[in-house]
Simulated assay, not measured.
Amino acid sequence: MSWQQYVDTYLIGSGKCSDGAIVSAAGDGSVWARSPGFQLSPQEAALLVKTFSDSSQAAASGLFVGGRKYMFLRCDGEAVYGKEREDGVVIMKTRTALVIGLYTKGTVPGECATAVGRVADYLKQHGY
């Protein structure tokens, strides 16, 4: 299965993520797959990777995902959460990737987190 199929089938296809992406956890900003129309800059991707080891910048300035600023809620080492009004972002880390899911008004944040978590767990089980 290609990286794009994980985004299309398990993130967007879940109905719980409005947009999604899988990016490299190496900090180089490379985007492996993303939903149509979702633009995640290499700089944004690199900063998201950094947030897992040092969340102080995100806590002070917010999370920037797809050109949009989200209020940083928390980082527990495996997941980062952000919110902007009734929309939000969930980012989960595997050994080699970050799985990103965005949700919009009407979606329960935990449902988006479950969809993102399923992809992250699958990647972890397969060495990614």
Rank of each mutant, 00 (worst) to 15 (best):
D28Y: 00
G106E: 10
L73C: 02
Q5N: 15
A97T: 09
E78L: 06
D121C: 05
P36E: 11
T51G: 06
V90E: 07
L11Y: 14
A113T: 11
E44Y: 03
V7S: 12
S30R: 08
V23K: 00
G62C: 11
R74F: 11
L73I: 12
R68E: 11
G13W: 13
Y103M: 03
G15W: 12
D19N: 14
F38A: 01
V116Y: 10
V116N: 07
C17L: 13
R95A: 13
G106C: 12
M71H: 05
G66L: 06
G88D: 01
G88K: 08
A21K: 05
T94G: 04
A97N: 06
A120I: 07
E78M: 10
D87P: 02
G29F: 02
A97I: 00
E86M: 13
C112E: 12
L73T: 03
V31K: 01
Y6A: 15
S2N: 15
E84N: 15
L63F: 00
C75F: 05
L11N: 11
E84L: 12
T9F: 09
I91R: 01
R74A: 10
G27W: 00
A21C: 10
L98S: 05
Q4A: 14
L11M: 11
A97D: 02
A60R: 13
S56G: 01
A59P: 00
I100E: 04
V89G: 04
